[in-house]
């Protein structure tokens, strides 16, 4: 049988993935990329009533180099897009991205000349949170989902190659070609 029978209760055997993922998912270090209204709900999430430390994600790092979860909270304009991309590139692997609110997910009702129609045009996204803005409970659900379905299923062998250069694309909602008018 297993090694447990040999050593008694003094040793627990497990898989290295389980240990790593257990540590990773209970010590998420979010980088809050808050640009708009959603960031105020993030403030609610980290304050006493919702207390995100219960889920091990309260050590907020404003340096991308020290964080593993990029929380994009708010509308991303074309002016902001290169910065978001750069922040993402600066984060070390393994890293995950949470897209909070309808603006980050799809542009929302800002279907206009300056707004990126969903951040997945710029960076890969792991979990989307609906709402305008989502309630803090929505963010908690997303963190739980991320812990269970993403971080919990990481493996040291199978981590996909990091995506290095997704272009900053312009997506038309009707699926048509990029429309750029020059005056």
């Amino acid at each position: 049988m297993g090694l447990e029978t040999l050593f008694g209760n003094s040793i627990v055997t497990t898989k290295i993935d389980s240990v790593l993922n257990w540590a990773r998912k209970n010590s998420i270090m979010p980088m809050p990329f808050g640009t708009a209204c959603c960031a105020i709900e993030f403030m609610g999430l980290v304050s006493s009533q919702y207390d995100v430390s219960r889920f091990g994600a309260e050590i907020v790092r404003f340096s991308p180099r020290q964080s593993d979860l990029l929380m994009v909270m708010g509308t991303i304009s074309y002016k902001q897009a290169p910065i978001l991309r750069r922040i993402y590139d600066q984060m070390p692997e393994p890293k995950w991205v949470l897209s909070m609110g309808v603006c980050a997910c799809s542009g929302g009702f800002y279907d206009n000349y300056c707004t990126v129609q969903g951040i997945d045009d710029i960076i890969p996204v792991d979990v989307y949170v609906a709402g305008c803005p989502p309630r803090p409970e929505g963010l908690i659900e997303a963190i739980l989902k991320l812990q269970g379905e993403r971080i919990g299923k990481e493996t040291v062998l199978g981590r996909p190659e990091p995506v290095v250069s997704l272009p900053v694309a312009s997506r038309d909602r009707e699926g048509g070609a990029q429309e750029t008018v020059r005056h």
Binding site: Y78, I83, C114, Q178, V181, H183
Partner: peptide, 19 residues
């Protein structure tokens, strides 16, 4: 172009390459 001009189409998006 100048987006608030009436002849600028609202969905005419212009990505930025570098800040």
């Amino acid at each position: 172009g100048h987006p608030l001009r009436k002849d600028y189409p609202i969905r005419s998006r212009q990505p930025l390459s570098e800040n």
